[in-house]
């Protein structure tokens, strides 16, 4: 199996406060990994560290992305190499047209691959088709990036970007939060449509619910900055029933 992402003993801190404490995870092509865990476990931090966000300092460990040292790459290099983060809170960019933004992003990816740029007409055709699939209001492509979008519209917009950019590894950071069941389904369908033997997903979520629609190959529980348990889909159900407390207790028991 082709290894896409290998995280080894990752330690990271924010403002001097350790958040990730020796996280290790290997993701092969074609796999869907769900990462669950209580608030403050470091789930979102993992996404930010992988995407290269300023202020998230890696203090130890390594991350390899398709054989490259991910941590030495710039944010945009990671993106065009095929790493995608669907943000939990997508930012608004006033005055910047959504279509223009997305086409610029698509063409940055194409340039990096040595391909010709996509012209405006072909771009719009593709975008419109995907928006229909995502049941997204077509007007959103002409609005400013995320400006005045509802929570659900922002998340759909993230999935639209993912569909257009065709990443190798997509990290979905609580993409399900704040979505009603219909929106959740749309987003999940959007992800499932991209599932393939060459592509992997890391689905960060609080709730088991999303995993009914995006069925993971592996479920990991993150607690206090490292993975404390891994299993298959059934573990998510177990977590839902029992909560995270038993894991944390186990942790403390181990530590003492």
């Amino acid at each position: 199996m082709t290894e896409l992402l290998r995280i080894e003993n990752l330690h990271a801190e924010v403002n001097g406060k350790p958040i990730l404490n020796g996280l290790s995870l290997t993701i092969n092509a074609g796999e869907v990994h769900a990462i669950m865990g209580p608030n403050g476990a470091g789930k979102s931090t993992l996404g930010h560290v992988l995407s290269g966000r300023d202020g998230y300092e890696v203090t130890a460990g390594s991350v390899h992305f398709m054989g490259q040292d991910l941590l030495s790459m710039d944010i945009e290099e990671r993106a065009v190499a095929g790493l995608f983060l669907a943000f939990q809170y997508p930012v608004e960019i006033p005055g910047v047209n959504n279509a223009y933004f997305l086409r610029t992003a698509v063409n940055a990816h194409r340039r990096a691959r040595g391909e010709d740029e996509l012209d405006a007409v072909s771009f719009m055709r593709q975008a419109r088709t995907l928006m229909k699939e995502l049941k997204m209001n077509e007007a959103l492509i002409k609005r400013n990036v995320n400006e005045g979008f509802s929570g659900g519209e922002k998340k759909r917009n993230e999935v639209l970007q993912m569909r257009m950019l065709l990443p190798k590894v997509a990290i979905l950071d609580e993409t399900d939060s704040g979505l009603d069941i219909d929106a959740l389904r749309c987003v999940a369908d959007g992800v499932n449509a991209l599932r393939s033997a060459e592509r992997s997903f890391v689905v960060i979520t609080h709730y088991q619910r999303l995993l009914d629609y995006i069925v993971p190959d592996y479920v990991h529980v993150l607690s206090a900055g490292k993975i404390v348990a891994s299993g298959d889909k059934s573990m998510a159900l177990e977590l839902e029933a029992k909560g995270y407390a038993w894991l944390q207790e186990g942790d403390e028991a181990k530590a003492s």
Binding site: S51, G52, R53, D54, G55, D74, I75, E76, R78, A79, V80, F84, L85, F87, P90, V91, I93, P94, G95, V96, F101, L102, T104, A105, A108, H109, A112, N144, Q161, L165
Partner: peptide, 28 residues
Amino acid sequence: AEDQLHYCRSRGLSEEDAVAMIVHGFCR
């Protein structure tokens, strides 16, 4: 905003292009 810059760059835009885009948006 750092988060706007990060958002643009995480979609593959260079830092320079990201700043230009945000500034253009501001002036639109």
